[in-house]
Design a protein around this nucleic acid. Structure first.
Length: 124
DNA sequence: CCATTGACCGGCT
DNA sequence: TAGCCGGCCAATG
């Protein structure tokens, strides 16, 4: 029951809200990949849906969207777009360093944060 | 309703 | 290291 004519949407809407919360939980100066955000929000969607979820965020909602990057450690906007420049600028302002258009996920990413807690500032 | 798109990802060559 | 390919799934035309 309840499944009839377009009812019972697989709570994609709920998943979207989870995405917002996950993104809001990313500390300043740190980053998370689309895939990681998707997973932390629950196994309902996929990495590709994360961008849609963030675009759906209400105007005025505080959402550090710039802390979400791709699994290669780079920004996923076209290189010559305004979004690319803006995201990079926001991240650099938080101390995230780019080398050849990519950041070191081992250092700024999720796993990196754990490693630093356990091993301290190993880094090279 | 079918086809294409997209702020992606992992595996394979 | 770099590039191609298939899968993913809601949104858009």
């Amino acid at each position: 029951m309840s499944n009839h004519s377009g009812l019972d949407k697989p709570d994609f809407g709920a998943w979207v809200k989870n995405v917002w919360q996950v993104v809001q939980g990313i500390p300043r100066g740190c980053v998370l990949t689309y895939g990681e955000v998707a997973r932390l929000a629950g196994s309902g969607g996929s990495a590709r849906r994360v961008s849609q979820a963030m675009r759906r965020a209400p105007r005025g909602m505080e959402l550090p969207w710039h802390r979400v990057i791709n699994a290669q450690g780079g920004i996923s906007f076209p290189l010559d777009s305004e979004g690319y420049r803006q995201q990079k600028a926001l991240l650099e302002k938080e101390g995230v360093v780019f080398r050849n258009g990519k950041t070191n996920l081992q250092r700024y990413g999720y796993a990196g944060a754990l490693d630093r807690l356990l091993w301290g500032e190993t880094e090279s």
